[in-house]
Write a protein that binds this DNA or RNA. Sequence first.
DNA 1: GCTTGACCTTCCAATGATTGTAAACTTTAA
DNA 2: TTAAAGTTTACAATCATTGGAAGGTCAAGC
Lengths: 137, 137
Amino acid sequence: MSAEILNIGQAAEASGISAKMIRHYEDVGLVPPASRTFSGYRTYNHRDVHMLRFIRHSRDLGFSIKQIGDLLSLWRDQNRPSRKVKSMAIEHIAMLDRKIQELSVMKSELARLVSCCHGDARPDCPILDGLAQNKIA
Amino acid sequence: MSAEILNIGQAAEASGISAKMIRHYEDVGLVPPASRTFSGYRTYNHRDVHMLRFIRHSRDLGFSIKQIGDLLSLWRDQNRPSRKVKSMAIEHIAMLDRKIQELSVMKSELARLVSCCHGDARPDCPILDGLAQNKIA
DNA sequence: GCTTGACCTTCCAATGATTGTAAACTTTAA
DNA sequence: TTAAAGTTTACAATCATTGGAAGGTCAAGC
């Protein structure tokens, strides 16, 4: 359970990142190469798992691999100015907002079309007509 | 300008779908193979451009290529029941809603962390601490 | 006729994050 | 000892889109 040294499956379990993705993150350089046992199995300690969890939470918040790389650098830099982290986060919030906006526009436009469609056995359909029109909305 | 027969560049211009993507849609079978000139250039007529615009509007509303294929089938089927189209649209709205929800959760969680961070030259940063914690929120 | 530039053709590859598969090896437990 | 479960690598697929390279075609100007 609380063993010092974990293999990749246990690290995956403990961090919430699949073994597959842990290897992938190593491949692309997001995490440093793991230590290996004599037979070649990757090993992870408590610090490694902590880092993987950091990555997982960052992904859960929608940061890209590239951005998470930057966040990890800041995390490791004991002298970073918190200003840098905050501005990254604020910019990311703005990006999330833009995406939410985009999706909301799609949704309301589609909802408008849906509200015009009786939706029965008859073939005439304002939704298809709307999609075929030169301009939507 | 209003020529009967367009080449792929003109069709792209008229439909709002890049020439690159028009070829791609042909490759994956979303649109039928275009007619060709003697020398091999693709040609598009008014009906083709109409179809491309249908595709473009469907993409603008976030439908996948697969879904657009289904919508095109319904569009072409003069006997479709509008019920089918409406249920597809409603399901898609639900999917958009789920995505919006996801992003909203990300946003509010990140906003919470941001609000805790003074964001100056000092290194202590609740955002990084939050990301490193075992559980967010 | 010839050149130039803008267009078109096909094919191959990359993006970004993740998943799947396959063949071979190691560990663990019965 | 053997079977199951876990690990290793490498390669491919997903989704929609973009980029590039190498070559053919078309229209204009000289």
